[in-house]
Design a protein around this nucleic acid. Structure first.
Lengths: 328, 328
DNA sequence: CTGTTAGCGCGTTCAC
DNA sequence: GTGAACGCGCTAACAG
């Protein structure tokens, strides 16, 4: 089905078909200077033949793909679902399709695939040159990262640092045996916002750092569960766990329950991210997080996808603590 | 960065650049009849300029996008993650990028976006004409569905029916108060494979069907959780729950635990799908499911994406029951 | 006001 | 190793 076949069937030129179906240019009736009757006939034929323009061909001329790419590292994380859902809701009504790239190397994919806007949820600060290069090629990026400047691409961040301080303060009000469940990356301080508050919080309370109270996991729920088990399945287990993501906190709760520990009594757990899933689980999860974050991401992406050319910005979100059953 | 700029810089024609960089056609050295030295120079220039071909332009000529589209209805379902992970693993090494379409109307997206192969995880039988139309346009579809014939598109199914019979038999060995947690769609018998075994199983055991032992949920985990609560939070609660997905079963376990019920003692829960998450949760989930399913899906998709033109097939997977703690 | 002609953009590939 | 046509849709310029 090409535009040419539609034009033939309708007895007009391809130009007329294009004008009518893309609704661009010319008169405000949306027919681009084509008589109403003709426009109607064209639409009828296009409908009958099931024609719809080849996006690739269109892209070559217009530079637009009507697409937003979401590069998400950990799809199993409710955080990712939050992003997807918000973007979906905002973009679909405008005819923009959100495509998800799971846990892949965004750099290599971005090289070839062109979306009108791209969201990247995990870029180490070292990738800044690469990101700048893409931005220089005219790709519109929105990067979720806590340390990068807005060097040609938007940076959206949510100040996890102060938020995590709140989480630790909450636990320190009742506990001294506090373990941390975090990612390897975080632990190496390539992402200090979530790890440092643990160290500083203990130090401020005069509690020494214990190596066997530090457990790390990689991106799979399985490994978070195993890491939590390592912390809990022994005599000198901690009385509280500070988990650097909600999903890890949920795994910790599962592990604790498996061991017969009562959450909120034998063990307090605090997560980071304040996801809906955490709020809903039993027991509900105490967590720190931003408010309105997903909608802001969606809003920004859609604006950029529609060609907003204003200077790149850094957008911050304040965090607060949501106290629930897992750490009363 | 276009092919023309690379050609200029290297002092050759665009044809030579294309031959070298796409590695197609002609001589087996992969240079398409371009001298080694020239090929080297071209590669060097392309690398220096950071060139990479525009996929849209390439698609217009070759008809290939090097892309597989996965239309997945419920990303939060571990089942979806299983599909993604398997396809990722199989496709990436071949330079094929899997793109995910979350919970969207595949029909409208498919109209415009062209992937080399498309996986659709939820198509009601009524959509057959639409699917056939797409297949007729040369789109390669793989549909996960239990009733459709292979009408121009591949159908992969896993005989949930017999599997669910196993699940019910397992519960009927110990219980008479068995509730079902299922989707609205399933209940209307638009997907009888998972619902009918419940009805038939009870009938065969001479147990009357009770309307208040039937609870339905839609695609969100929240609603599965709420549905489970409706079943459990009352005096005449069932002693076992047959959930038509693993993710619903997990929600039921959470709900039961919140109510203080002991899983495997006060309440048995069986899921459908046999997901890794279910296996890992505490208590581990008894479930029925196929073996090797994800890899088969990935294998088929990749073959189709690479142009396999053999007749469309229906592929079946036998199911078995995996007995674990949630229903010993 | 209605419609067409023709060239563009980019990578591929046939014929020389 | 190259020239040039090709595929598809968009749109400026032009003609009735």
């Amino acid at each position: 089905m090409t535009i040419k076949q539609v034009a033939e069937q309708a007895g007009v030129s391809t130009a007329s078909v294009s004008y009518v179906l893309s609704g661009r240019s010319g008169s405000p009736d949306g027919n681009g200077g084509v008589a109403k009757a003709t426009a109607e006939r064209i639409r009828e034929v296009a409908g009958r033949l099931g024609y719809s323009p080849d996006r690739a061909a269109r892209k070559i001329r217009t530079g637009r793909t009507e697409t937003i790419l979401l590069s998400l590292t950990m799809l199993s994380d409710p955080w990712a679902l939050g992003v997807i859902e918000a973007v979906q809701r905002r973009a679909m009504p405008l005819g923009i399709t959100p495509m998800i790239l799971a846990d892949a190397d965004w750099a290599s994919v971005l090289r070839g695939h062109d979306a009108d806007a791209v969201f990247i949820d995990a870029a180490s600060p070292g990738k800044q040159p690469e990101l700048e290069a893409f931005a220089g090629q005219g790709k519109r990026l929105v990067v979720f990262q806590e340390e990068l400047p807005a060097a040609g691409f938007d940076v959206i961040r949510s100040l996890a640092g102060p938020g995590c301080v709140l989480a630790m303060q909450h636990l320190l009000g009742k506990h001294r045996e506090i373990a941390i469940l975090t990612t390897e990356r975080s632990r190496n301080n390539s992402d200090p916002a979530r790890f440092q508050p643990y160290v500083d919080g203990l130090a401020a309370a005069g509690i020494p750092l214990r190596n066997n109270f530090i457990a790390t996991f990689d991106r799979s729920p399985a490994s978070a569960y195993a890491a939590a088990m390592r912390l809990l399945d022994r005599a000198d287990r901690p009385s509280a766990i500070y988990a650097t993501t909600d999903f890890a906190a949920m795994s910790a709760v599962n592990a604790a329950q498996r061991l017969g520990l009562r959450i909120g009594t034998d063990l307090d757990v605090v997560g980071v991210g304040n996801t809906e899933e955490g709020e809903r689980m039993a027991p509900s999860l105490t967590s720190v997080g931003p408010e309105g974050f997903f909608d802001a991401v969606a809003e920004l992406l859609v604006r950029r996808a529609q060609g907003d050319d204003s200077p790149a910005r850094v957008i911050d979100f304040p965090w607060k603590i949501f106290v629930r059953e897992s750490a009363p």
